[in-house]
Amino acid sequence: MSIQHFRVALIPFFAAFCLPVFAHPETLVKVKDAEDQLGARVGYIELDLNSGKILESFRPEERFPMMSTFKVLLCGAVLSRVDAGQEQLGRRIHYSQNDLVKYSPVTEKHLTDGMTVRELCSAAITMSDNTAANLLLTTIGGPKELTAFLHNMGDHVTRLDRWEPELNEAIPNDERDTTMPAAMATTLRKLLTGELLTLASRQQLIDWMEADKVAGPLLRSALPAGWFIADKSGASERGSRGIIAALGPDGKPSRIVVIYTTGSQATMDERNRQIAEIGASLIKHW
């Protein structure tokens, strides 16, 4: 058993032996400061991975655009179909130039040979490839079927209504393609630790998130040596930015963190910096 498999397999085991986890309101002070700095709403939640207890939250039940963070949920739905014998990670999917949409750094290189379902999930999560996400959405029946999958998990909040890139429109008060921090954190925890997916599929999902290559300026920039993080970021119109993550010290995840912001006029660099500073406060007061 690899170190990674050891880590995921023991998450339920550690729940019975973990020390009490204490919240630190200092992080919420930073979240509120980020709102002031960005001139935008910020949603935040910090969840204990083992118990599911909410440690801190700010606007946990307000809607925010999901942006590309939905791609983790999408690959969770794909893995659920794999577990049920309805899909194979090794199945190759062929597509054409007409299928390519904006920001497809991986799929645009494989027009001649296509990509496997496994490769598409990797591209969608680690590189946020939009065509990969659309191709995967097609395999499960489209955005409405992803919403149905989430409903069956008990998440009646999170919804996907459109495809890439239209889902990134982020119109104020538009509930399409949105979630709430509390709903996203709970759903992510179920995917990573619950019985919905097999152990192998849970491991695969967290491996893809751990290999994320496009979230460096966010929480990863504040991470001390030896800490673990598996994450997925997102960005969209109207100053929207977000990240969902499982992270913790000693090389294993122990908390879920979800951060969303929307409605800012700030630059992408400034949005990144504010999220990184929230992460730094979280780690300092861990």
Rank of each mutant, 00 (worst) to 15 (best):
T186P: 06
G226T: 07
A246F: 08
H110Y: 10
G194S: 13
S236R: 01
S254G: 10
R118N: 14
L247Q: 00
R202E: 07
E145S: 10
P253M: 12
A170T: 13
M127T: 10
A183E: 08
A133D: 01
G248A: 01
S201I: 06
Q88N: 14
A23V: 12
H110Q: 07
S80G: 11
Q37R: 15
G194C: 10
L223C: 09
L135V: 11
D129A: 00
A124V: 04
D207H: 13
E87C: 04
E237Q: 09
A200Y: 10
S57A: 14
T198C: 10
R238G: 14
F149N: 03
Q86S: 14
T198P: 04
L55T: 04
R202P: 15
P224W: 01
K252W: 07
I54V: 14
D212H: 03
K213T: 08
W227G: 00
S254P: 02
D250S: 11
F13L: 12
T158A: 02
L136A: 03
T187G: 04
D99Y: 08
K232D: 00
T138K: 15
R238C: 13
Q204S: 08
P65T: 04
K284W: 05
G142V: 00
P172V: 10
S80K: 14
L135Y: 01
I93T: 03
M153S: 12
T262S: 14
R271A: 15
S240C: 13
L89E: 04
P12E: 04
R81D: 03
A84E: 14
G251N: 14
E195D: 14
P172R: 08
I278V: 05
Q203E: 10
K232E: 11
T139Q: 14
L89S: 04
R176C: 08
E175R: 08
V21L: 08
A132S: 07
I243W: 03
N173H: 12
D174N: 04
G194V: 06
M180I: 11
L73Y: 03
L137R: 00
G226F: 03
D48A: 06
K53H: 10
W163C: 09
F13S: 10
I93V: 13
F228R: 02
S254L: 08
T193L: 12
A9G: 13
R118K: 07
S236L: 03
I244D: 00
N50K: 13
N168T: 07
D207S: 14
A77T: 10
T267Y: 04
L219C: 01
E56C: 07
S264D: 05
P12S: 14
A148V: 12
L160Q: 03
S96L: 10
I244H: 00
A246G: 02
P172A: 12
R238T: 13
G43V: 00
E210G: 06
H285V: 04
A200L: 08
I3R: 09
A40E: 11
I278T: 00
R81Y: 06
E175P: 15
E175C: 10
L223R: 02
S57D: 05
L10M: 12
V21I: 09
R59G: 01
T138Y: 11
P249R: 05
L19G: 13
E56K: 05
Q204V: 12
D174P: 02
S236Q: 03
E145K: 13
F22I: 08
R41K: 15
K53R: 14
T262K: 11
I259L: 07
G242N: 02
Q86H: 11
W163D: 05
W208L: 04
R189T: 08
D174S: 05
Q4V: 13
M268Y: 08
T262E: 11
D250L: 08
G263E: 11
H156S: 12
D99R: 08
D250Q: 14
V42S: 01
D177G: 01
I283D: 00
L146Y: 02
T193I: 15
I244K: 00
D269V: 11
L10W: 09
E145H: 13
V72A: 06
T186V: 14
P12R: 04
I11K: 04
G90N: 14
K53E: 14
V8S: 15
T178G: 01
L89H: 04
V82Q: 04
P217S: 10
M268F: 08
P65W: 01
I140S: 02
A40V: 08
I171M: 12
G85T: 05
L10H: 06
D99E: 15
S240F: 04
K53C: 10
G239M: 03
L196V: 15
E62V: 06
K252H: 12
A235S: 10
S96I: 09
T147S: 08
H285T: 09
D177S: 01
M115V: 04
D250Y: 12
S57G: 09
T262D: 10
V42G: 01
G85C: 07
S128G: 03
S122C: 12
R176L: 08
R81N: 08
P105L: 05
L247I: 13
E169S: 13
T186S: 15
T262A: 11
A77D: 06
H110R: 08
R92L: 12
N130A: 02
R238D: 13
T179E: 00
G251I: 03
P249Q: 05
S128R: 00
I206S: 12
W227F: 04
I3N: 13
E87L: 10
L205F: 01
M180E: 13
F70V: 07
L282C: 06
A84P: 01
T262V: 11
L167V: 12
G52D: 05
E175F: 11
C121S: 04
E169Y: 09
R271P: 06
F70G: 03
D212C: 04
R220Y: 01
H24Y: 05
V82L: 04
S281R: 09
V214D: 05
I54R: 07
I3T: 13
W163L: 09
T179L: 00
L150C: 09
F64L: 00
H5P: 09
S240M: 04
T126R: 04
L47S: 05
N130D: 03
R41W: 05
L188T: 06
L89Q: 03
H24P: 07
M115L: 11
E166T: 09
K213E: 09
S57M: 10
V78T: 06
H285Y: 10
R91F: 03
G234A: 06
V257A: 02
D33A: 14
A246R: 00
S264T: 15
N272T: 06
R220T: 01
E277D: 08
A40N: 09
P253H: 06
S57F: 08
G216E: 08
A276S: 10
R176S: 08
L197T: 02
H24Q: 07
S221A: 13
N168V: 05
R118D: 13
L19I: 15
L73G: 04
E164D: 01
R220D: 01
H156Q: 13
P143C: 02
R91Q: 04
L223V: 13
E61D: 14
I244G: 00
D177A: 01
M127I: 09
Q86N: 15
A183P: 05
D174Q: 05
E119K: 05
P65E: 06
Q97H: 12
G242H: 01
